[in-house]
């Protein structure tokens, strides 16, 4: 393991998450990954949605944008299109990305824009104090489902494979070193990267605890026979649940990214293009 340099990504303000929250590990992994990649804080644009984890953009020293519930992906997309020289990372919770924002989630994946999307997936709504989320297990009793969840949970990894994401991974907030590696790989990946992160919610989710995950997770990429370019194998792995929960890179492929498909962006980012001398004469002449 490389030694951790002084993290210039440390923020002035400090997190207000519950003691023991999985988000502390995630935040640390993000800062370490950005530091180890040698990125400069002012070249990073960190977008978040709304939820406990979405406050993280306040607590990583970079240009940050703490936005609306479920809408961080369109916002991150716009930011990347506006200035693709920035490293754009996005984070939200499972309610944010797989609930209210699931339409944007699927469309952003098929667009393959070059950004990293991390979902702190705690299988519960934390900031609204303990309702079922789209990834809550069937039967789970919460404040909004006192008799147990009746719906089948979303399978974000399988959904991502089907929607055309080009980097699909899962991490665990309790394994910061592994998560940091995933984040670094996700940022280095050219195209849309999803990291679904198992994040224990120590306050509201008494089922999916640190111990629960520690007993079940295993590292996918420790298996030399597992190939990350095999969609079918990834799909099969995505179906695993119960007592065996794979973490690591499920799938990765190279595909044209949105920024390459738009010749308007080839010369330089939109934000640096001159807007003071636009000649509209040729346009007006088209109407004569």
């Amino acid at each position: 393991m490389a030694s951790i340099k002084k993290a210039s990504f440390d923020s002035v303000a400090k997190p207000d998450w519950c003691p023991g929250c999985g988000l502390f590990g995630i935040q640390m992994a993000i800062k370490q990954a950005l530091t180890e990649l040698g990125l400069e804080p002012h070249k990073v644009f960190f977008v978040t949605g709304i939820g406990c984890g979405s406050k993280a953009s306040h607590w990583v020293n970079a240009y940050g944008m703490h936005t609306l519930h479920g809408r961080s992906l369109p916002i991150a997309t716009g930011a990347k299109l506006g200035n693709h020289s920035l490293t754009v990372i996005d984070m939200g919770g499972d309610g944010d990305g797989y609930g209210i924002g699931i339409g944007h989630f699927m469309h952003t994946m098929r667009r393959n824009i070059d950004l990293l999307y991390m979902v702190n997936d705690n299988q519960i709504y934390g900031l609204t104090k303990g309702q079922a989320s789209p990834t809550s297990e069937k039967g789970m009793k919460t404040k909004s489902t006192p008799f147990g969840v009746v719906e089948t949970p979303i399978n974000p990894i399988a959904l991502a494979i089907n929607s055309g994401a080009t980097f699909i991974a899962r991490g665990f907030a309790g394994d910061i070193v592994h998560l940091k590696w995933l984040i670094m790989e996700g940022i280095k990946h050219k195209g849309f990267s999803l990291i679904d992160i198992f994040q224990p919610c120590v306050t509201f989710n008494k089922i999916n605890t640190y111990a629960y995950f520690q007993q079940r997770v295993y590292k996918l990429n420790d298996d030399p026979n597992y190939k990350t370019n095999d969609r079918e194998a990834a799909w099969k792995k995505a179906q695993e649940g119960g007592d065996k929960l794979p973490i690591g890179i499920f799938y990765q492929e190279t595909r044209e990214i949105e920024e390459e498909a738009e010749p308007q962006l080839l010369k330089q980012p939109l934000v640096y293009q001159d807007i003071k001398n636009v000649n509209i004469e040729p346009l007006m002449k088209k109407f004569v």
Binding site: P74, G78, L81, G82, N83, L270, V271
Partner: peptide, 16 residues
């Protein structure tokens, strides 16, 4: 919803 949020993201990094 995506349309307006996309342009908000773009404007936030300085483009019209």
């Amino acid at each position: 919803i995506s349309a307006i949020n996309t342009i908000i993201g773009a404007s936030a990094v300085g483009i019209r």
